[in-house]
Design a protein around this nucleic acid. Structure first.
Lengths: 328, 328
DNA sequence: TCAAAAGTGTTATCCTTACACCCATGT
DNA sequence: ACATGGGTGTAAGGATAACACTTTTGA
């Protein structure tokens, strides 16, 4: 009756490095030891006999695979749709399973330590989602995508065309629609549905009709199997959670300046924030406490160092940060 | 290496009935056809060959098991910890799997139709979580739990005692701490950890030290395997989501009065709301549109009927409702 | 002395909260 | 007439968004 299934675990491990949000990626090797062309997330099979919980299993294999110790971890989503490439985990020569289900996890860490593990590196978000960064104003990639999306919309029959256009407008802030930074997954899925994301053609088993260099760059780099979908899910979740839970601090060192905190929030949310209003909101929330010490090498006037009042986590329905947008 | 695992699907199907939030429960039968003493959620094995996605599989088995068609569905969480009873799904006489992983889903439906399926019924939340309903002020069950929780806290050694007390205070609004309706899962897990929830003793394989009638009633009815945990996850998610996505409307009929809408929100959130402010917030959000028609059998002045402007779902970053609390 | 980045003050506006009151129907 | 529930107005206080300005360092 119900066939057994193999469970895989995938980890989106996020850190901040030089003001950019980065993700730990790997290049898995095939049987002949050749590294894959595409990057992927750290992933591994879940062995129910060896581990009591998913989370323990995840921590174990990530440490083993990337020599990296996870801190904050949360479950994201369980991906099980057919029609997407199954992860090619190294499961030895047992009976090949008919289906791989993967449980995605989001992990946050305060320092993007170089792991020196083979085939492992920190990659910027924008490598995979070049259109998600609005810190410097509307990203150029969007102009390129807009053309392709409109063409796709026009190809719809009857009411389909209008509906496609409406969805594209909303997701990608076309024709003056407001940008919503949380809808990362929606945008990725639209690009997938429109057949623009290279993964779509690959999953259908078709050769992709090589898009222009420019369009390829605007779409971002594809990843192994459904890993870019998992990454999009992680970014959506993280951008949303930022606002109602104090998760940013999991990405910060013990002591930090308010500007560094703001740059971190901006890197995650992909939008520029209003300095004073950001600080006022922080202060009102009481999330942070001055240390009296100063950071001197800021390039200008020294900045006071602050710490997250971690004790609040257990002491209050601690809320997240508001994102006072900076208009441009 | 990685042993295969069987995946089960569980559904928390929520509706509103006579102003109460209700959940579809079943009483599974064992081999001899005897119905279980405990209620459970509808659940079934996931057959990867028969179904392309989890969601399709879920819809199919729920319809088959309860004769009920699901509308709104979202994935909740994937539960895989060892140490909790595995669901006893009817999987025929194949090789017994070593572990069952269950993917929980939340479903919302506008009418609590009687399904007339055998062993299936609509149960009020409060049967399983009597302390979660603050609509009529602080629930009496909390006074009973408070005594038991303080006893548990005192049993901790050293700093453990203080930490237990602090956690209990926050989760259960003791000593003047504010009530946070979203922390349903946290409360359930605290009761489980404290050994108060009957499931805890059962999972440890111990006989439970029969608590008083009164305490039992305050703790709520236990469920099969980890279903009460799944239910708590669902309630937490739903209470949170209410505030940032217009999900309530999935529980309403096409046309409804504003009071009925408010009663629905109150039933889900378990708190009483301020009428005028609730309406003002609704109006500002523009979520709802008057139909001009009136509902006459209200018991007083007839009320105008409204409809949810469903077109907004695709047209805007539609937000949820604010919960303007009514203080008492 | 100037650039660069830190940090402060102030205002108009909007939203939230809280109060009290009027309206239309059935019995 | 009155009980019951539907529906409205308005003012105080707090949060947000937007403005421009001062301070402290290194080069």
């Amino acid at each position: 009756m119900a066939d057994p299934v193999v469970i895989g675990l995938s980890a989106v491990i996020v850190a901040i490095r030089e003001g950019e949000a980065v993700v730990l990626t790997v290049r898995p090797r095939d049987g002949d030891g050749r590294a894959s062309e595409l990057a992927g997330l750290p992933f591994g099979p879940f062995d129910p006999d060896a581990h009591r919980t998913f989370e323990l299993a995840l921590r174990a294999f990530v440490t083993q695979q990337t020599r990296f110790d996870l801190g904050y971890v949360e479950q994201l989503y369980t991906f099980g749709d057919r029609g997407r490439d199954a992860p090619v985990a190294n499961m030895g020569p047992g009976a090949a399973p008919s289906r791989v289900i993967s449980v995605g996890y989001l992990a946050l860490t305060p320092q993007a330590v170089d792991t020196h593990a083979p085939d492992t590196e920190w990659s910027s978000w924008s490598r995979f989602f070049p259109y998600e960064d609005w810190r410097g104003g509307r990203p150029r990639a969007l102009a390129v995508l807009e053309v392709a999306l409109r063409r796709w919309a026009e190809m719809g029959r009857g009411a389909e065309a209008a509906s496609r256009l409406a969805r594209a407008r909303l997701a990608f802030a076309l024709d003056g629609a407001p940008w919503n930074e949380e809808r990362v997954l929606e945008r990725y899925e639209l690009l997938y549905e429109a057949g623009l994301a290279p993964e779509a053609a690959r999953d259908r088993g078709e050769a992709c009709g090589a898009p222009s260099e420019e369009l390829s760059a605007a779409l971002g780099e594809p990843m192994i199997s459904d890993h870019r979908r998992i990454l999009a899910t992680a970014l959506s979740r993280l951008r949303g959670k930022l606002k109602y839970r104090p998760v940013v601090f999991e990405l910060m060192p013990e002591a930090f300046t308010l500007s560094a905190l703001q740059r971190t929030v901006e890197a995650i949310a992909g939008v520029a924030l209003h300095k004073q209003n950001f600080r006022r909101a922080l202060e009102r929330a009481g999330l942070v406490e001055g240390l009296g010490r100063l950071e001197t090498d800021t390039g200008g006037r020294p900045a006071e160092l602050f710490r997250f009042r971690r004790e609040l986590l257990s002491a209050r329905p601690a809320s997240g940060l508001s994102l006072p947008l900076l208009r441009d």
